[in-house]
Design a binder for these strands. Structure first.
Lengths: 153, 153
DNA sequence: CTAATAAGTTGACTTTGTCAACTTATTTTA
DNA sequence: TAAAATAAGTTGACAAAGTCAACTTATTAG
């Protein structure tokens, strides 16, 4: 086995190593949400909604991979706290079009500032060259994975 | 803003994009554990224990980032099902040295086969050049992040 | 020797996620 | 176009995952 072994087995174990490493890192970032104004699930919904104003629950669920029932409750909770608004979808009476309220937008901005801060402190711990290389590698991974013919459903 | 903008703001948003993408991917992989012989938390513990025979609970907890109480219950459950064994730690009567039982080792092998299969099917959806590039990018990310002076606690 | 600290357990609790039944609305199809 | 299939969303009942603090016992530090 050479120093540049690229056997399938080796590749798999390296990817799994990355997955372990990144699971831990994301867990760390996620833990920094504890005690915030909204839970992690709600934060994900708010965040996505902030990026796609006027979308319907089913789209949020698809994008975030959330169960319909769970999402329904998350939305109900956000609605009760006046962070999101609903208006009737003119093309489908079963759905509503969702939006952030001004208050929700404020929380959204706070969450973004918070997330940015976490990532910023990560970057700050690296030399400038590594910062750039890190970002390039991440971009490339997304690019490659998105090019798959059939992303696993 | 040039095509190769590397302002801090831009880097942060690209990292956050990667985090979103990879959160979804890990969630997908994780969901494939549903209905297996052990839950996801137990699987993580088993997996780590398989790689570090004879370790103590506190080390598992550190490495996996698990709460002591939660871990204690996970271990109790694995013990009750005879997947792990304990023997007294000669140097500290509060701790036990943990190991997989033969049965636990079998489950561990199944889990690994399963995880390998998930990753393999991911790789299989990519051209060979991209496979290699993907793995290289992942290695590099781990390398860079591990070089940080103070990994966020 | 005492005080502080660490490993692990337990109880009580919250959050997160899953599943299926159900209602209402839309789409398909015979 | 009426009946059947499907889709969006809600709800109840659960299960899994994770958190927190009090507690016991053992170890270490002062």
């Amino acid at each position: 086995m050479s120093c540049y072994d690229s056997s399938e087995t080796d590749q798999i174990s390296r990817i799994r190593r990355f997955n372990r490493y990144y699971t831990a890192l994301l867990g760390l970032l996620r833990s920094r949400y504890l005690g915030g104004p909204v839970g992690y699930g709600e934060a994900r919904v708010l965040f996505e909604l902030g990026r796609r104003p006027g979308c319907r629950a089913v789209e949020l669920g698809r994008d975030l991979g959330l169960d319909r029932g769970y999402l329904s409750r998350l939305l109900a909770s956000l609605f009760k706290r006046a962070l999101i608004s609903k208006k009737p979808d003119p093309t489908d009476l079963r759905s509503s079009l969702l939006d952030l309220t001004p208050k929700g937008r404020t929380v959204w901005e706070d969450l973004n500032r918070h997330s940015d801060g976490l990532v910023r402190s990560l970057l700050a711990a690296l030399p400038v060259r590594e910062q750039a290389e890190l970002v390039r590698a991440m971009d490339r991974i997304v690019e490659i994975l998105e090019s798959r013919e059939q992303p696993p459903e």
